[in-house]
Amino acid sequence: MAQQTWTAVDAYFDGLLVEEDEALTGAAADSEAAGLPAHQVAPNQGKLLHLLARIRGARRILEIGTLGGYSTIWLARALPEGGQLVTLEVDERCAEIAAANIARAGLQDSVDIRHGRAIDLLPQLAGTAPFDLVFIDADKPSNPEYLEWALKLTRPGSVIIGDNVVRDGAVVDATSSDPRVQGVRRFTELIAEHPRLTATALQTVGSKGYDGLVMALVTQ
């Protein structure tokens, strides 16, 4: 009953506030048709990322975890003229599908898709930093390392967002044997301890179920 209600509420607000065009719906549909996991953000979450990037005035965005490019499109559309988004994807098939979806959205000139392990690709971005916004939505056990690199590649005023941190509530279980839960817990603890960051976390419910995100501001 709860999931049915959450999905209906999302549909209500999406119908009023979130405009998905053919590029976005096509990206989601093509990703599903290709058998990619349904891990992309929901439409209202994509719009939230878009608004946060615009509020920040982001000219350079880093995305860790491309999947089919759905969130990439939302973020890239927030860029001003001359802005750039770099997105990292380990799976070659995902990168290919994302490239097609991004091209259909007309964003190929502002999006740089890099294929490979993010932990190997991140050091290569040092010469192109700083980024104004970093969206981390990849393998959760590596989140602590992604945070370390996000801090190296940002500056005061940059925003770092980590998705899927609630794990259906499992994040509170310190004894969990799930490496994704432990990755998220360490990620959040590191944010809490870091002198350059101030942050908060939000639980979310909706068409994607029960989860949440962490958002941190780089202060120095």
Rank of each mutant, 00 (worst) to 15 (best):
residue 2 A to R: 12
residue 4 Q to P: 03
residue 5 T to D: 14
residue 8 A to K: 11
residue 16 L to C: 10
residue 19 E to C: 07
residue 20 E to I: 08
residue 21 D to L: 10
residue 25 T to S: 15
residue 29 A to M: 08
residue 32 E to R: 13
residue 33 A to G: 06
residue 37 P to T: 01
residue 40 Q to H: 12
residue 43 P to R: 10
residue 44 N to W: 14
residue 44 N to E: 14
residue 47 K to R: 15
residue 51 L to K: 10
residue 52 L to G: 08
residue 59 R to K: 15
residue 60 R to N: 14
residue 60 R to I: 11
residue 60 R to A: 15
residue 67 L to I: 01
residue 71 S to N: 14
residue 71 S to M: 12
residue 74 W to I: 01
residue 76 A to F: 14
residue 76 A to D: 07
residue 77 R to T: 10
residue 77 R to M: 11
residue 79 L to K: 06
residue 83 G to T: 04
residue 84 Q to D: 13
residue 84 Q to S: 15
residue 86 V to F: 14
residue 89 E to D: 11
residue 93 R to P: 09
residue 94 C to V: 01
residue 94 C to T: 03
residue 96 E to N: 07
residue 97 I to K: 00
residue 99 A to P: 07
residue 100 A to P: 02
residue 101 N to S: 13
residue 102 I to H: 02
residue 104 R to Q: 14
residue 105 A to M: 04
residue 106 G to M: 13
residue 112 D to Y: 03
residue 115 H to P: 10
residue 124 Q to Y: 00
residue 127 G to D: 12
residue 128 T to W: 04
residue 128 T to A: 09
residue 133 L to F: 10
residue 134 V to C: 04
residue 135 F to E: 05
residue 137 D to M: 04
residue 139 D to M: 10
residue 140 K to H: 08
residue 140 K to L: 07
residue 140 K to W: 04
residue 142 S to Y: 07
residue 144 P to A: 06
residue 146 Y to F: 04
residue 147 L to C: 08
residue 149 W to T: 01
residue 154 T to Y: 01
residue 156 P to H: 06
residue 160 I to E: 08
residue 160 I to G: 04
residue 163 D to K: 05
residue 165 V to Q: 09
residue 167 R to S: 03
residue 169 G to A: 03
residue 172 V to L: 13
residue 172 V to R: 12
residue 181 V to N: 01
residue 185 R to E: 13
residue 189 E to N: 12
residue 190 L to S: 12
residue 191 I to L: 09
residue 192 A to Y: 05
residue 195 P to T: 12
residue 197 L to T: 05
residue 197 L to M: 08
residue 198 T to W: 05
residue 198 T to E: 14
residue 199 A to E: 07
residue 201 A to Y: 13
residue 203 Q to E: 13
residue 205 V to P: 02
residue 207 S to N: 00
residue 211 D to F: 12
residue 213 L to R: 02
residue 214 V to Y: 04
residue 216 A to F: 04
residue 220 Q to I: 00
